Structures are given as C-alpha cells and as structure tokens.
Simulated assay, not measured.
Amino acid sequence: MESGDAGASGLSILVVESDPTARVALLDHLRRNGFIILESEHGGASIRAAHERPFDYVVTDIDWSGVSDGSALARWVTASRPEARVILTSKTLTHWFPADSKMAGLPVLMKPFRQEDLDRLLSPVSALVIPGS
C-alpha cells in the first residue's frame, strides 16, 4: 500500500514490518517526516515492490516467518540496488552475518527502537538531497 505525496524530503522508503502496531507507529513517524512510503507486512509483496521500483531506503524486519525473509530482501536490495540504504530491525538480534557478507555492514535496530535512532540512520541520505532537485 502506497502513501504520502512528495513531502518535505521526497525520499522514498519501503517499510516491511510484520507487527501491525510497530508498523503503524513507524509509518506515522515517516509520514510526518515527508517520506514517500510503500509498506508491506512481509513476503512476496515487498520483494516484488523492490524489483519494480527503486527506493532511497528499505527498512525491513528480518524476523519474518515463511518462504522468504527480511534477510533475503536485504541481500537482494544490496546486490541489485546498491544506491538504496538498507536498515534492518529485529526483536532478537541473534542474527550473525559473516564479515565478508554484504549483510555484515548493514545497521540493525533492536525492536522496540527509539525514533531518534532510526532518524540518525535516515539522515545520511537526507543530507545529500539538494533542495529543488
């Protein structure tokens, strides 16, 4: 489901969060900050969305259950859309990625996380946007 117009920042973000309460809070925060949002609960819809269009950011829960998972989405995005910044979220933080893996350098936020921590991770790309571009 897509929401938001080209807001203050106009940056696009794919949000994948299986917990409805966490997803609503996250989406509300991102809308207030002017992001163009595509949201997904999990699975195939988010992977199809990532294939169909570029995003400035992908914020994905890596604790999905089912056929595919947030790690698979993150690996695809880092390989196929290297310009996108991927931010992982997890309730457990028991994930281990080999040092030579594309996943090793990705930021992981422990849920529940503070909005300020997410904002800190979102700011590097925002700082590169040239007003009026």
Rank of each mutant, 00 (worst) to 15 (best):
F113G: 12
T78W: 07
R31A: 12
A22Y: 02
I62V: 13
L38V: 14
K102T: 13
I130Y: 02
P54V: 12
R32D: 12
W96P: 00
T78R: 14
T89E: 01
A25V: 09
P82L: 06
R85F: 02
S3R: 15
A6N: 10
Y57A: 00
V77I: 09
T21D: 05
L73W: 00
L38G: 05
V59G: 09
M103W: 00
A8T: 12
A84I: 06
H42G: 03
R53Y: 02
P131C: 07
D56R: 14
L14G: 02
H42C: 05
M1N: 14
A79T: 10
M103Y: 00
R23H: 09
L26V: 05
W96A: 15
S12Y: 09
V15P: 00
N33V: 01
L11K: 06
V86N: 07
Y57N: 04
S18E: 14
G70F: 00
I47A: 08
P20F: 10
R48K: 10
K111G: 04
F55N: 08
Q115Y: 10
W76I: 07
P112G: 11
F35Q: 08
L106A: 01
D19H: 15
E39V: 05
E2H: 12
D5V: 15
H95G: 00
F55E: 02
H29Y: 11
G44I: 15
H42I: 02
G66W: 08
W64E: 10
R31W: 00
A25Y: 07
M1C: 00
S3N: 05
S133F: 05
P107Q: 05
H42S: 14
G132R: 12
P124F: 04
L14P: 06
S80A: 14
T21L: 08
S40A: 15
